[in-house]
Design a protein around this nucleic acid. Sequence first.
DNA 1: TAGTGGTCTAGACCACTAC
DNA 2: TAGTGGTCTAGACCACTAA
Lengths: 243, 243
Amino acid sequence: MNTEFATIDTRLPAYARLRDTLTARIARGDWTPETPIPSEARLAREFDVSVGTVRKAVDGLVGEGLLERRQGSGTFVRAPSFNASLFRFFPMRDSDGAPVSIPQSRMLRRTPTTAPAEAEAALGTADVIQISRLRCLTEQPVLFEEIYIPRNRFPGFETLPDTAFGPLLYPVYFEKFGTLVKRATDEVSFDRASPPVAAQLHINPGDPLAVIRRTAFDIEGTAVEWRIASGSAAGFRYRSEIN
Amino acid sequence: MNTEFATIDTRLPAYARLRDTLTARIARGDWTPETPIPSEARLAREFDVSVGTVRKAVDGLVGEGLLERRQGSGTFVRAPSFNASLFRFFPMRDSDGAPVSIPQSRMLRRTPTTAPAEAEAALGTADVIQISRLRCLTEQPVLFEEIYIPRNRFPGFETLPDTAFGPLLYPVYFEKFGTLVKRATDEVSFDRASPPVAAQLHINPGDPLAVIRRTAFDIEGTAVEWRIASGSAAGFRYRSEIN
DNA sequence: TAGTGGTCTAGACCACTAC
DNA sequence: TAGTGGTCTAGACCACTAA
């Protein structure tokens, strides 16, 4: 990636070039969330700008949620991932009001395929890998997900061993493919369960279904994943903040 | 409101005191969106701080969406209201794919009452005014809303003439009561239409319903409105950004 | 105590807008 | 051309953290 400080379009202000350079280094994984990035004074020397300019660049990344300042300690890369789990929209307590046990994910399939129209429109390519997952709470299937990721961005994803996957995919995207999911758009609607989806969720065909379509974007704003997730509409509650 | 610069807790940094002072003046309506606020240099003289400190205060308010800078022209108050209309989550096209015509609101009732438990929990008081509205697209009822606002904050709201209301309530809150809605939380769930709601929406009891519960907050973060809105689940699509 | 980020100053010059 | 915000500097001192 052509994002070294000196090579970035010099029509951009210094703080913007520095911000983009830092973004690239963060995305590349130069720093872990445990070790601080260089101090403001060091960065000022390294890039030959004033500390105030470094502060403005870092301020921008802090505002985006990529960095985190700790007075007296340093500035750190924030552990990735917003609270992205779709689980949180489904009931986490059983009928007695007792909290249900640990969420689990069962990977059903990973295959290269041609994307359906909606996924292609979101991702800008039809050359994708399809991932089917079933997510369960206390052995009960809660959420059925069909996920599409561009093949050129995740080469060999379908051949990874099953043991490479925990309950979340975004850490795998980051650690194995250097893709950091930064934000996403969700679209919630209601439908009736088709026979195959009903079979996966152990409900009856025609039962009301909550459907979440999500497009996820990386730091640069490129769409990197499209998914459609379905669960029983009973007890479903989608929460969101608007500003 | 005790928010003049000199009287604000001096343990706060200067830029924070200035920011809070400006917030109070904006909320009070000292400036319209058409006339610029005083220039950075003027504010620096008025509050006896440096221009850099003024910039930091203004930067914060720009980040919150309260102010807008225009290089060469000045800094302006942003016209209030995020894109808050719940309308946008319902189909805006009829079955032919043609855009439906202008959204309309019909005020059904405004009465002082005791808030239901959910509204009381959100607002911190049960002494409220209840507003019932029906929102229509091309004469078709689309959304039925029950809205609760604290009586002490909106005194006399129930006696305003019907002509005071356009399709949106938030401008009325601001212009008549000085309450600026800044953010809100939504919760989307699924239900079936009760007979009274079904009658309002011209659907059958038991039909699938999309339900949005919203709590709205003012600039200071105080809950100022709770509402529950219901519409047919068919064609409903709730969109949201997550970060 | 040394090093970090947090606040603040008092300038400078530039880019843009409106008159 | 005068006035605005946009960028940038080179300091100062403070508050906090960790060794």
